[in-house]
């Protein structure tokens, strides 16, 4: 096959693509923290809640982790207007991703809560620590150790997963790549450059997160 690669046509669009990458990071951020906020309640409810709360949270997690985020968002985007709720694409994507990541984060955070063994807390209380001290000296370091790596990996995973927003015409990195490729018709080049930006983005995120883990939480986490 004779194919004349022309990357120059893509490189001129680099600032535009990087602007999309910025939105990618923002979406991942919102999905992560929104999901974490709901996930904390989910995890606490799953561990300490009554039978009904546990059952409901379990059903939520099982449903959202066993169906594709894309179809969940389709459902929000196309089915909610039936009930009179019209969402703009970005809002639908964000709500969908938050609900989805809440399910995964419930599971991840639950593992963290369980990992703080009762014995350690009791031991800390018997040597005269106050509950707040127990929280900050015993529970949090322990939770950080078990959770930092999976949470970091999940964030990186969300950065890659946020590309589905492109399918709702959201102009994040993949969305802008689609826009460029339809106008300059250098499809392969555009997506190869886009892929490279994703690689770079996730490597930076990984390095940054391992650095935070080492310095702030004293965790030697191997982030993806």
């Amino acid at each position: 096959m004779e194919y004349d690669f022309q990357f120059a046509k893509v490189f001129t669009e680099l600032p535009y693509l990087l602007g999309g990458a910025w939105l990618t990071i923002q979406i991942a951020f919102i999905a992560f923290w929104g999901g974490a906020f709901l996930g904390i309640f989910g995890a606490i409810g799953k561990v300490y809640g009554g039978a009904i709360a546990r059952g409901a949270i379990g059903a939520y997690v099982v449903f959202f982790t066993n169906t594709p985020a894309l179809v969940q968002i389709f459902f929000l985007f196309y089915a909610l207007p039936e009930a009179g709720i019209v969402l703009n694409p970005l809002t639908a994507v964000l709500i969908g991703m938050v609900l989805n990541s809440a399910a995964y984060l419930t599971d991840i955070l639950r593992a963290g809560i369980i990992s703080v063994r009762k014995a350690e807390i009791e031991a800390a209380l018997t040597i005269g620590m106050r509950p707040l001290q127990v929280l900050s000296y015993v529970m949090l370091p322990h939770v950080a150790k078990t959770l930092f790596a999976p949470l970091s990996n999940f964030f990186v995973w969300l950065m890659l997963g946020s590309s589905i927003a492109a399918l709702f015409a959201v102009e994040e990195l993949t969305g802008r790549a689609i826009n460029i490729s339809t106008s300059n018709l250098r499809t392969i080049e555009t997506f190869v450059v886009t892929a490279s930006i994703y690689i770079l983005l996730t490597i930076i995120a990984s390095l940054f997160l391992s650095f935070i883990g080492r310095t702030v939480f004293r965790v030697k986490a191997k982030v993806m």
Partner: peptide
């Protein structure tokens, strides 16, 4: 490399790579 590219982007690259060949 492939653990750091969204599946959607890989799909597009494979599509546009294979189709002309």
């Amino acid at each position: 490399t492939f653990r750091r590219i969204p599946f959607l982007v890989v799909l597009f690259i494979v599509l546009y790579f294979i189709q002309p060949i």
